[in-house]
Design a protein around this nucleic acid. Structure first.
Lengths: 182, 182
DNA sequence: GCAGTGATGTCATTCGCTGACATCACTGTA
DNA sequence: TACAGTGATGTCAGCGAATGACATCACTGC
């Protein structure tokens, strides 16, 4: 990350990273699948956290709220290291390849959440949809949090974003969801 | 695409592609930013279609429904070439790098939709959320459509998925969105 | 004719990434 | 103690994606 900040991701070679770390290029690739993966080393841990929180949510909690328990738990951990999170965010924001990797990690997170929801008895499509909604809320709330010079409370931003999503999504006609199309 | 189907994406070299197309490797890279981009050549056109449909939606249509007009219009075009869509889908599904590219194209689509919504007067966050919801619906409906041996009507699947999302997202308590957190 | 433009070819080079093999520290066991 | 096994690292060679620099050639408008 030092090198990525100093000279940018593209301008940094793996040889330089290995050199600064005091090992060889080959060894770098034994630890990380590729040059981008360095920035996503903690993703697996975070995913376990998300899934655990969904699994542990009370059985009577509806799908989206169970999925939200996952991302809220993740948000709480993320905001513990605001400086790190912001630096990492800026590196990623400056490079398209890194954004691609970030997106596929989020997709994997979404799939994991959906899996956890299914294990709670939520039907397939509903589980996927609820997971996608939770990840969308996560993305937008995180974006708000990390871009604000004053770091607000991330879990709270997430809940606020979900409320907003509900407002935006709610059917304008009177009847609620079922009445959308006859 | 012929070569990607025959031997897989990873096993196909750019030299081979160029060769079959009757030109040189260097020329290939003048037409496509990288090896993956070949499969996403139509994305810009599709994005314009999405945005156009959102812009053309009646002014009194609420945000999510305006965003849905975009993805539904896209769905209608996509389902015109079921064989092509399925083949392309299978190539992408078999390769992680291609999935990354697909995801960033969808993210770009989402940003474009959000932009179109803002131009309709929808506030920032609401626009982003509505766009994310529409893209989530698009993804899941497309997945259903392309995986089903009998191709159903894609726009209809999208509307059904949105209804399901509304059901899943709707607050279980009585009061609707605003009542979620006091 | 002729200058200008855009598409293509040629060549050399960098860099990400991988396979094969060697080295070396460390551990458990005869 | 000696030795076999294991895992992390280094060394070396090589492939393929991607890029910059320069040359060629068809085509257009004057």
């Amino acid at each position: 990350m030092e090198l990525y900040v100093e000279r940018g991701f593209d301008e940094t070679t793996v040889a330089e990273i290995a050199n600064r770390a005091g090992l060889t290029e080959r060894t770098f690739f034994r630890h990380f699948a590729d040059k981008r993966e360095v920035l996503f080393a903690g993703a697996a841990m975070l995913q376990d956290l998300f899934v655990g929180a969904v699994t542990d949510a009370p059985a009577d909690v509806p799908p989206v709220d169970a999925a939200m328990a996952g991302v809220v738990a993740g948000g709480a951990v993320i905001q513990e290291r605001p400086a790190f999170s912001r630096q990492r965010y800026e590196i990623i924001a400056a490079n398209a390849e890194l954004q691609e990797r970030e997106l596929i990690k989020l997709a994997s997170l979404s799939a994991a959440l959906a899996g956890a929801l299914r294990r709670r008895g939520v039907p397939d499509h509903a589980a996927s949809l609820a997971a996608e909604v939770a990840i969308a809320v996560f993305k937008i709330a995180f974006e708000r949090w990390v871009s604000d010079p004053v770091h607000l409370d991330l879990p709270q931003l997430m809940r606020a974003s979900l409320d907003e999503l509900r407002t935006v999504t709610a059917d304008s006609e009177t009847g609620g969801p079922a009445a959308t199309r006859p």
